[in-house]
Amino acid sequence: MKPEELKYAKSHEWIKLGDEAVVGVSDYAQHEMGDVVFVELPKVGQKAEKEKQCAVVESVKSAFDILSPVSGTITAVNEAVAADPALLNQSPLDEGWLFKIKPENPADAETLLTWEQYQVFIKQA
């Protein structure tokens, strides 16, 4: 996926919007996390709430809560990244995606950042 086509949350998740949106972790964030050793994914069918924890990514000495950028129902999870967490470091925007979600509230997307806004945001951080 091209980073410019994605939206971003301030908690560093990216989302490819659509009927079935795809969520992952930004390249900047995977870099900050360091080597990912474990990914805990939500269950398919589970409800996720905007800005609430729905997955966990662990490095050797840290754990990061992954927040859902929108509210909705989880429709798929990336078993490949659970089996090989290194994918999240190697390919955060493609093979390292985390879960798919059916958004329930279109307004949720309004507060998300564009690629350009996110670039500014991470520079400030």
């Binding site: 474990f38 662990e58 000495k61 754990a63």
Partner: peptide, 13 residues
């Protein structure tokens, strides 16, 4: 190993 389960990292979780 698997230290991210533990109190010194996860604190209240």
């Amino acid at each position: 190993t698997l230290q991210a389960r533990e109190q010194h990292i996860r604190r209240d979780k």
